[in-house]
Structures are given as C-alpha cells and as structure tokens.
Design a protein around this nucleic acid. Structure first.
Length: 297
DNA sequence: AATGAAACCTGACAGC
DNA sequence: TGCTGTCAGGTTTCAT
C-alpha cells in the first residue's frame, strides 16, 4: 500500500509523537508472520527500551531503540554512539501505525500494541496482513556466547538505493543492463527501494516513457528525464502528505492529498490532462499499469 | 541469474 | 439484499 511518500509521512508523524518515550509494555498477535523476529521475542525485548528516533529507509519504518533509561545520545564516554536495537516495520499494502490514547477503542485487525510512558499507545493495524515487523539488533549485551548474535553491526540499510538521494549517473547505471520493462525495474526494491505502483506510473508519465520499454534500451537522456521526474513526483507527494487512494492515513489518522495530483494512476479511460487521449490500462510485471498512449513513447 | 506468475489476505466496489 | 467477480498502495516463493 504505502510507498515512499506515505511511509515518509508516517515515519515523520510517528517520530514527532513518540520520540523519547519509553516502551512500558508490548503485545503482538501471533497471526502476522514477521520476516525475522517472532512476536514473542519482540514482546520480550522491546519493553524497557526508549525510542530515540523514527525514520524511513525505502518502504521501511525504522525505530532507533536505546536499552538505557536515557536516549543513546547521552551515552557515557567510551560507549559507542548509536542505537542498540532497531525495530523495523513494513506496512505492506494496508498497514497503519497509529498513536492513540490508551482509552480510545482498539480498531479491528490490530496486530501490535506498544504501551508508552506517556500513557498513549502505538498501534500496528493491518487488515490484509501483508505488513511485517522485525528487530534489527546492532549491539547485543544479552546474547549467550556462541549464539552468533553478539557483537556489533551496522544500521538497517534496506534492499536498494534511496530514490531521493541517488545521483543521475548512479540511476542510469542501475538500469544499464536490465533486460526487463522499465516499470518492473522501477518496482524492483533491490535497485531502488521505496518506489511502488503509483509513483512508478506517475514518474513514467511525467518522463514521457511507456511502461513496457525495456530498461536497458532507454537512452541516457530518457533515464535522466526519469530520474528527474521520479524525484520531483516523490518530493511533491511528500509535501502533500502522500496519496490516500483507499485507506491510507498518517500517524494521526489523517489522509494525504497527492491523489488529487495523479495524472494516470487509476484514471483509465479518462482524458490525459496534457492531450486529452483516454488513459489506458494494461498489466505489466503483474501490476495494473496506467499510461497515455500519445504522451508516452 | 533473472523474470514472470502465483500465492499470501481482507475489503471495497461494480454488476447482476 | 446478496451473490460473484475484480481490483487494491507489496513482497516472497516457485517455476521457467
């Protein structure tokens, strides 16, 4: 569901609301299979930790957690700076992270609840259960020798490159030898992470490129146009709080506004806003794909 | 190695 | 009203 702009909006909203809070208690339903960490392990390790900050990597929301009673930025000399553990949340298609007062009704399909020191709760709600949660342990003081979990490792990096940070040259290099459609390549999280179906279609429209064009056959100028269009559309969407197509809401339950700026996504049969030609829909890489047959070549 | 299709889930909506 | 079919912002797994 949520793509980079929606995940960015959620991460910022959650960060504003829960930064500095201590986790008093944690509960997870056992239904959603987390990708790495069991619900029982998350529920055991999170309580007592403090949320140092919340940010986005690709489509993942990263919570930096400090095991101390103080945020890690106040760690004494000699202790390496940085979080001890990161809690990683992926919203899948329908996942939501909501910060709510503890006495407000818990919505259906709630699969995780962190009770916070302020008395509020951070709730993970996901009707379709495609969302995932896991712990990324950087420094483990509790591990038993020989279990392979000790020592240190780097912060969670995500599977690919950041679309908003990548240079035009590195962007071109990603697609140079890809013998697949540019649409499929844009959706491949190991290349760029964070781009999903909406922003793939919208950036291809703004760059004037047909979704089925083979990535490796795009010219340098075309890839530069796509790089520019993608960054522009992602920035505009973040500024408007993301796209609310059906049920996306931010941490306060507020919808985004970028859906009003969609030029092709879910506009099948409607006139192209540039030339008036009806927008067409086809399936590329297994996903509904929307484009203008005249403006995109 | 890499690509595409199917599978994983539930809910909303259109059409009958 | 209620049924059926289709579609949905994503990722993983299994055949090619």
């Amino acid at each position: 569901m949520p793509e980079l702009p929606e995940v960015e909006t959620v991460a910022r909203g959650v960060d504003e609301r829960v930064r500095g809070e201590r986790i008093e208690d944690a509960w997870f339903s056992s239904k959603p299979e987390p990708f790495k960490t069991s619900p029982a392990e998350m529920a055991e390790r999170l309580p007592g930790m403090r949320i140092a900050r919340v940010y986005r990597v690709g489509k993942h929301i990263v919570f930096d957690m400090a095991a101390d009673s103080l945020p890690f930025v106040h760690a004494p000399a000699g202790v390496p700076a940085g979080p001890d553990v990161q809690w990683i949340v992926h919203l899948g298609m329908t996942g939501r992270l909501l910060v709510a007062e503890a006495d407000t009704p818990v919505p259906g399909h709630t699969h995780g609840v962190l009770r916070l020191s302020s008395g509020r709760e951070l709730r993970f709600v996901d009707a379709r259960r495609f969302g995932r949660m896991a712990l990324h342990v950087l420094r483990d003081n509790t591990s038993v020798a020989g279990d392979g979990a000790g020592g240190t490792r780097g912060a969670f990096q995500g599977p690919g490159a950041e679309p908003l940070l990548i240079s035009a040259a590195a962007f071109r290099e990603l697609f140079r030898s890809r013998r697949t459609s540019i649409k499929a390549a844009l959706l491949n999280q190991k290349l760029l992470h964070g781009v999903g179906n909406i922003y793939a279609d919208e950036s291809l429209y703004r760059a004037g490129l047909r979704p089925r064009r083979m990535a490796a056959r795009l010219t340098r100028a075309e890839l530069d146009r796509l790089h520019e269009a993608l960054q522009r559309v992602l920035r505009e969407a973040i500024a408007l709080g993301g796209s609310s197509v059906s049920d996306y809401v931010d941490a306060a339950g507020v919808r985004g506004f970028f859906q009003l700026e969609h030029r092709v996504y879910m506009r099948t049969g409607k006139p192209c806003l540039t030339c008036g030609t009806p927008i067409r829909r086809l399936v590329v890489a297994g996903r509904g794909t929307h484009y203008c047959p005249k403006c995109q070549r």
